[in-house]
Design a protein around this nucleic acid. Sequence first.
DNA 1: AGGATAGCCTGCGGGC
DNA 2: TGCCCGCAGGCTATCC
Length: 287
Amino acid sequence: MPELPEVERVRLTLTPHLVGRTIKRAMLHRADICESFSRTSAGFKKVRTTPAALLEGDTVETLLRHGKQIAIIGDSGRVLCVHLGMSGQLRWKTEGTEIKATHTHAEWVPAPDLRRPEGRLIFRDPRRFGGLWTFDSLADLREARWNTLGPDALAIRAETLKEGLGKSTRVIKAALLDQTVIAGVGNIYADEALFLSAIRPTRRVNRLTAAEVRRLAAAIPEVLHPSIETGGTTLRDYVDANGEKGKGSERNAVYGRGGLPCLRCGKRLRQAIVGGRTTVWCATCQR
DNA sequence: AGGATAGCCTGCGGGC
DNA sequence: TGCCCGCAGGCTATCC
């Protein structure tokens, strides 16, 4: 469910709970949602997941994000990578918080910390499109997994976007959803960025002008930043680590507004499947 | 080899 | 009030 702003929000709200805490116990309730990798001379091989790989015994140093993926870094150097997929949640559970017990696939119990209230980290994911990946180091995660991702959408520049798009003939909407081109944009913010840059989602990548690519590159962080501030979009079941819902959905100019009037020109917004996903745009404002 | 499509899962809202 | 259908924020495997 989450795109970059929602994932960033989870990272930000989880950080104060986790950083500096030592993981006393890591529990994996469903083995098939986690893959562990270890380095070999040839590359990487899949190994059995151990509690230590899930950061048991580690003190959390920091939380990073690239695109829609989060990395939790332990003081041993080990790294736990979390991808929320469509329905994944990373939650900080305290005495008072109600979290559905169903589909809880992993839990982390920290050692008591006198300065902070007790709590534990929960990974839930009903649809199981998300998952966990463990590596011995951040370098390993970058080499084995994040290497396929394009530049993070918050830091995208016109030149790198142009390079990532290449001479592709597919529609721009599909290219924006391709995480190897740019990491972090999903269905909501692809439509929002295309609206803001006045480009039709059905335009072929290789037919975009340099000026249009520049507008698009500028529009992407511009649509992402406010959603990080407001707590991300809420359409269904997204919540941050503290269970707070986003307040950003009413800010969307096109996503979820098919058939409604364009906020800029008042004409009816078009809705159709583009690049395999429901897409909304204004045929008047976007060319 | 790039690009389009089906498929993986569960939950929920709308229409009957 | 059910029940069935369609649809959902992501990504991949597989075909052409």
